[in-house]
Design a protein around this nucleic acid. Structure first.
Length: 225
DNA sequence: TGGTGATCATCA
DNA sequence: TGATGATCACCA
């Protein structure tokens, strides 16, 4: 089906491998891995991410962990336009809606996932066929003090609302850099949460997403200074 | 059902 | 036209 790629033994090896992919089109990379290129992403929204995971030797699976737990690195592809600006928000992880008493930022899944991220920019607008999109220079990123402060602030504000049983009142407009939005297979996929009187309710699963302004800024901080 | 990978589709 | 809310595919 495809050539398997070994797991990188170090962060340096991972970054070096990612740098070697820069400049390639996704079509070229897919061909190397003997992977079929979909004509569009409407039914394969995760195709780019999974292609890069395969190319870099990330662990598959659907565990709420980093892609390279032994390296402490999370892998994220980031679609960008011709100006280098992100085209989409970035999914981080699902949000816990029950049993959240005592949850602290320091031990949160958001912080764990974002403590170190290998960003792979992928150049190409919606109209560009997936195979024609170009892999950009990777960026190994760790949040600086200000970024961490903003993330923490948003996380705490959103989690407080959830803990108060007000998850249904939280919209994507809450938060400066981090937002809470539905993350579900469809509108019928419900999960348990807590209502305003502390009663159990069923609601859409939610996920934390990074707003485009935040990812645009972190790219700018490293590539345009 | 709830995780992973995300982008789509529509509206303000 | 950018952002929000909705959705797609796959896996355990």
């Amino acid at each position: 089906m495809n050539n398997s790629v070994s797991r990188p033994s170090s962060i340096d090896a991972l970054v070096a491998r990612a740098e070697q992919l820069a400049g390639l089109s996704l079509g070229e990379l897919a061909q190397r891995l003997a992977i079929e290129v979909p004509p569009h992403l409407r039914r394969d929204k995760g195709w780019i991410g999974q292609l890069l995971e395969l190319a870099l030797g990330a662990s598959a699976g659907s565990k709420p962990e980093q892609d390279f737990p032994e390296l402490g690195v999370e892998l994220k592809t980031l679609p960008i336009d011709s100006n280098g600006k992100p085209l989409e928000t970035t999914f981080v992880c699902v949000a816990p809606l029950i049993d959240i008493a005592g949850l602290r930022w320091e031990y949160s899944n958001v912080r764990n996932k974002l403590s170190r991220v290998l960003w792979i920019p992928v150049l190409g607008e919606r109209g560009v066929a997936p195979g024609d999109r170009i892999i950009g220079q990777p960026l190994l990123w760790e949040p600086d003090e200000e970024e961490e402060r903003l993330l923490r602030q948003d996380w705490e504000e959103i989690m407080e609302l959830i803990s108060l049983g007000r998850v249904r009142e939280v919209t994507a407009r809450h938060g400066q850099v981090l937002q809470l939005r539905p993350k579900a297979a469809n509108g019928r996929a419900l999960t348990e949460a807590v209502g305003r009187q502390g009663q159990p309710i069923m609601t859409l699963p939610r996920g934390f997403y990074l707003k485009t302004g935040f990812t645009a800024a972190l790219l700018a901080r490293h590539f345009m200074l």
